[in-house]
């Protein structure tokens, strides 16, 4: 592989052409060592996942540190869910390594959660069964209250709303007392007001329990203010950085200020290769390789 994957090891971020380079903030990933960082919670190096001849992830490097909120953004088909699953050990790797600090407990909220209607299950039972040790009803109720979903405690899991389900899933992750929460589009099926509320909740929980959070989102606006770091993924890490740096960037207003530019903004930061500006699925690997050549 050439091009974008070399970016991570390139000493000078601006090595790639492009006058209005929005990725000036990608200083941190240029400093990632070749070996996994043993003091990180999770340290991934050169993660590669190939499915049916398609490279879903191309040598992705990533470090997650204690008490930080990291947001993973990128267009559809960028491999965000694949990366999350690879970090969790749910996706077989075709290359690379994932280091996890010893005894690391992760809380996971999957992207798609549908319970087969044939399986009767109350919310309380759903929360209890996720634990190796049976948690007391009080503990479960307290956690549900914390995420603002105590009223569904004895409801059937099938019958709660999308927003309630996301909070219940969050509660299940929290009950494990994790050092890191990995949330794959936790605002699915939630309206905009609810989304802001949910991200506020996640960020306050992260602070209260000193938990790290890795959040997959495609809504940069809502998550920006609450993130310590943003990673733009399009099969490879396009760029990553502190949102503050991004917001001080001269291009910020143009890119993120106008709502119309929002969807484009995310994809226009890295100019030595092409992305589909309409936000439709990214080109096939063959095309991508041609583009990068």
């Amino acid at each position: 592989m050439s091009g974008p994957t070399d970016l991570k090891t390139a000493p000078v971020p601006n090595a790639h052409s492009g006058a209005d380079h929005e990725c000036g903030h990608d200083h941190d990933h240029t400093q990632l060592s070749a070996e996994p960082n043993k003091s990180a919670l999770i340290s991934a190096r050169r993660l590669t996942v190939i499915r049916q001849g398609r490279e879903l992830l191309q040598k992705v490097d990533l470090d997650l540190w204690p008490s930080e909120i990291v947001t993973l953004i990128g267009p559809n088909g960028a491999g965000k869910t694949t990366l999350v699953k690879a970090l969790l050990g749910l996706e077989a790797l075709d290359g690379g390594t994932v280091f996890k600090s010893q005894g690391l407990v992760t809380g996971y909220v999957p992207q798609k959660f549908t319970l087969d209607p044939a399986l009767p299950l109350t919310v309380e039972r759903f929360l209890a069964v996720g634990l190796t040790q049976l948690a007391s009803t009080e503990k479960i109720a307290a956690t549900l209250k914390e995420v603002g979903a105590l009223h569904v405690l004895s409801s059937q899991l099938h019958q709660i709303s999308g927003g309630e389900l996301q909070r219940v899933l969050l509660a299940r992750a929290l009950l494990r007392a994790p050092q890191i929460l990995i949330l794959d589009e936790p605002a699915q099926g939630v309206d905009l007001a609810g989304e802001v509320e949910l991200y506020d909740l996640i960020s306050s929980l992260s602070e209260r329990y000193r938990m790290s959070v890795l959040l997959v989102s495609h809504d940069l606006h809502t998550v920006m203010a609450r993130s310590n770091r943003v990673i733009c993924l399009n099969r490879h890490v396009c760029c990553s950085g502190i949102p503050d740096t991004v917001s001080k960037h001269p291009e910020y207003e143009r890119l993120f200020g106008a709502a119309a530019a929002k969807s484009i903004a995310i994809y226009r930061h890295d100019h030595d290769h092409h992305h589909d500006l309409s936000g439709s699925p990214a080109p096939s690997p063959v095309q991508a390789k041609e583009d990068e050549a």
Partner: peptide, 18 residues
């Protein structure tokens, strides 16, 4: 029983939880 139930509820979640 418990692990089977966890897998029936959501396989990825169960796997992620060990």
């Amino acid at each position: 029983w418990r692990p089977l139930l966890r897998v029936s509820v959501h396989e990825d979640l169960a796997r992620a939880e060990g």
